[in-house]
Write a protein that binds this DNA or RNA. Structure first.
Length: 774
DNA sequence: CAGTGAGCGAGCTTCCGCTTGACTT
């Protein structure tokens, strides 16, 4: 048995480190935290100093007992979890969970997985930093108190099974407020003037494009300007060139990797992390959950060598980067290739592309600046004081641009700049065409997954390990949805001056197309309103930053952790009690108007199962009539007319096979009901206008599909069927499903085989965690 | 999946941050 046991957080890391250390060292992993508060209960003793009641996490029991065996056999246990708050707590929990003798443990830390860093760490052990552990406890307890007291309040006041927390609720707030800005936004138009000049000088013939420094607010002003251009002379007044340079972006952190993979490769945040994890586990890249832009000295040397060999001496420039991010804990290196001479990796397409991106970004970060020359040409108009400006840009030395160009979210705003033709000051230009085009101001863009991560990082909310899970949480709770929005066609005015005639026409452009953006749902908007009204301090954008400051003070030993929690909890809990007692159910109810037929009020609100319209008063003798909203409708924007439409369901649209066809809107959207069977409408079908012919088509389609999925059926007993499902063939008997043993061929099963399968208990489907529906 | 919109009131839902697998009938 090895004399030394080293425990790190990640198994891939354990494997690498074991290679650096000798035979006397056994390296194992804890797989992250091993102890936590119970999921079932609050597990914080509020009466007695907020002491947390930890337990060994159910999924870690096996690992803990394994580690305990190794630890008992070892002479020294080296606790090598990350050097941050969470890592320190992991080390402390390991001492408790493995019941380690304090004399037997040594705490070591390193920021990079290199042999020299590990050796140095082993030479400089320390004890567990209890202040840092306390800072983690404060963080953990605060999040638990906020999450487990706010969520039940939502269950009572808004809707069951909702959730709220320090991180997720701010993410929802960002998205809800952006939507509000978009709804309030009024597009304004102005006229942008561009000119095309013919050049015919001693350098030869060419063309110059230039833009007027001023925009006009109305069509008349634009035309007036063009009229004045008719007799005008155009002269080059000034040519100004100045050298500039561009520097590369720092290497990737989790957040910047997610952003660039989204923009350049179209990956979702979760997909990026999944692929990065694969690359990490196969040893191709360093750790992918990091907030650090730092590279190890070893990495800097490797990059330098690679650049010199591939691109030449003058392309290499060693650079050190420093983190500006709020609350960064920098326990790891930046995300980089493990070996820079590996330019391509084996694996699937996604792995190849993500690796390529990481390789280029890291290499570029160690390359020299790109040298540019920017030119501004000013063109005078003889009878006006406005000027035309032509801009040009020439790359004198490409530097890092040879391998990598960072994109930005608003890149379509950037005009393309190119090389300008040779020109002289004082030269007269020939007017070819001048154009006035109506341009509209752009509404604020909705968040994508990646731009939401960027914003959260700026606010210091969430950590590299939680960005992706937070997005899945708010999607799973249906606070937001990820969707495409088709653009709308828009007319704009286009005026042209050519020779001596001005023509104007109406052109069509498509605008506002958005792909995979985050939209708030009605329930997301409602929960945000509730929290804003009663707990604005929790979802304040600065809340996390201010508690982080206090956690830092605890880590420094300047504050006692449970005193800090006490100061927060008193007022917070009072507010919970107060809201519980004094506030009514929060349904977002809004009066839309009167029903012209009955004269009763029509309301829109959130019901038990989502947004509904209501005809009549709740406390009336006649029960009110309800109807669910259609997909795409929202309680924020629905009109009285649209609400009246909804009350027309269910509606009869004729007969098929002598049985009524009924259209209605249900839990899962609009459907056709026929002979007590349901047929969902397609997204493109409109339930208000759908025809009998189309409904029959839907029915026949579903019948055909069901037939195709039948592998075996039996004349003797038509309740027994072998069907093709999402996960392969399965057996269905009277709506109960069974697994088919792997050694049996589903195509050849007899009725007897099927009945036998159904009797075997190991084929009975396991009860999956099911979303409770009623 | 299942097509509702309440109050006989069971028992459940929920947080953030560390890690990686198990695997649907």
């Amino acid at each position: 048995m090895a004399k030394n046991l080293v425990i790190v957080e990640s198994p891939a890391k354990a494997k690498t480190i074991e290679g650096f250390l000798g035979k006397d060292f056994l390296v194992k992993s804890s797989f992250g935290h091993v102890m936590d508060l119970s999921k079932k209960k609050l597990s914080v003793d509020i009466e007695d100093g907020f002491v947390p009641k930890y337990e060994i996490s159910p999924d870690k029991k096996k690992i803990v007992s394994e580690l305990k065996k190794y630890a008992d056999d070892a002479k020294t246990v080296w606790l090598a979890s990350d050097e941050d708050r969470e890592g320190e707590a992991i080390a402390w929990h390991l001492v408790n969970a493995l019941k380690l003798d304090e004399k037997k443990i040594k705490r070591i830390v390193f920021h990079e997985i290199t042999k020299s860093a590990i050796t140095k760490a082993i030479e400089n052990p320390r004890g567990i930093d209890k202040n840092l552990v306390d800072a983690q406890q404060a963080r953990r307890v605060l999040d638990r108190l906020v999450g487990y007291e706010l969520s039940p309040l939502l269950w009572k006041k808004v809707k069951p099974a909702l959730s709220a927390g320090r991180v997720q609720s701010v993410a929802v707030r960002l998205i809800a407020e952006r939507e509000e800005d978009i709804n309030k936004f009024k597009s304004k138009s102005s006229y942008n003037i561009t000119a095309k000049f013919d050049i015919n000088n001693d350098f030869g013939k060419s063309i110059l494009f230039a833009e007027l420094s001023k925009r006009f607010n109305t069509k008349n002003e634009a035309i007036e300007f063009l009229e004045k251009c008719k007799p005008a002379e155009f002269t080059i007044a000034d040519i100004e060139t100045k050298p500039t340079k561009k520097s590369p972006a720092p290497p990737f952190t989790t957040s910047t990797l997610q952003q660039e993979a989204s923009r350049k490769l179209g990956f979702s945040v979760a997909n990026t992390m999944r692929v990065a994890q694969q690359l990490y586990e196969s040893g191709k890249i360093t750790y992918m959950r990091t907030d650090s832009v730092n590279l190890s000295n070893l990495a800097l040397a490797m990059a330098n060598k690679e650049i010199k060999e591939s691109f030449g001496e003058k392309y290499a420039k060693t650079r050190k980067y420093f983190t500006k991010t709020k609350g960064a804990q920098e326990a790891h290196e930046a995300i980089r290739p493990t070996y820079f001479n590996v330019k391509k990796v084996e694996g699937d397409n996604a792995q190849k592309r993500l690796y390529n991106l990481i390789w280029k970004r890291t290499i570029a970060s160690q390359m020299s600046d790109a040298l540019l020359e920017k030119t501004n040409v000013t063109v005078n108009i003889s009878n006006l004081k406005e000027k035309f400006i032509a801009k040009g840009e020439v790359i004198k030395f490409d530097g890092f641009l040879k391998v990598y160009f960072e994109t930005s979210d608003q890149e379509n705003q950037e005009e393309q700049k190119g090389v300008l033709p040779p020109l002289r000051i004082g030269e007269k230009l020939l007017r070819n065409e001048i154009i006035a085009e109506e341009k509209f101001t752009q509404q604020p863009p909705r968040y994508s997954e990646a731009s939401l991560v960027k914003k959260m990082e700026e606010l210091g909310i969430g950590r590299p390990s939680t960005y992706a899970p937070t997005i899945s949480t708010i999607l799973r709770r249906e606070y937001v949805v990820k969707e495409d929005k088709p653009g709308i066609q828009r007319n704009y005015i286009f005026i042209s001056l050519k020779k001596d005639s001005i023509t104007d026409e109406i052109k069509i452009e498509k605008s506002g197309y958005e792909k995979a953006k985050l939209f708030p749902t009605d329930i997301g908007i409602l929960v945000n309103k509730f929290l804003l009204q009663y707990f604005d301090n929790i979802i304040d954008y600065n809340f996390t930053a201010s508690v982080e400051k206090e956690f830092d003070e605890i880590a420094e030993g300047q504050k006692i952790w449970n005193e800090m929690i006490g100061e927060f909890y008193g007022p917070f809990h009072n507010k919970i009690d107060n809201t519980l007692e004094n506030s009514k159910k929060f349904s977002g109810e809004k009066l839309l108007g009167l029903d012209p037929k009955t004269g009763k009020n029509i309301f829109v609100k959130i019901g038990r199962f989502g947004p509904i319209v209501q005809l009549g008063e709740t406390d009336d003798d006649d029960k009110p009539k309800f109807a669910g909203l259609k997909k795409g409708q929202s309680i924020e924007t629905i009109t009285l007319e649209e609400a009246l439409e909804l009350f027309k369901f269910p509606r009869n649209i004729g007969k098929y096979e002598d049985i009524d066809l009924t259209i209605a809107i249900g839990r899962f959207g609009p459907y056709v009901m026929h002979n007590k069977l349901f047929y969902s409408l397609a997204k493109t079908d409109d339930p208000t206008t759908i025809t009998q012919v189309r409904a029959v088509e839907l029915i026949e389609e579903k019948r055909k599909k069901a037939k195709e999925n039948i592998i075996r059926e039996f004349k003797e007993d038509n309740s027994v069927k072998v069907l093709r499902g999402k996960y392969g063939p399965y057996l269905s008997i009277k709506k109960k499903n069974f697994k088919i043993p792997k050694e049996m061929n589903p195509e050849e099963l007899t009725l007897e085989d099927c009945l036998k399968i159904a009797e075997d208990p190991k084929n009975v489907p396991k009860k999956r965690f099911s979303k409770k529906r009623k």
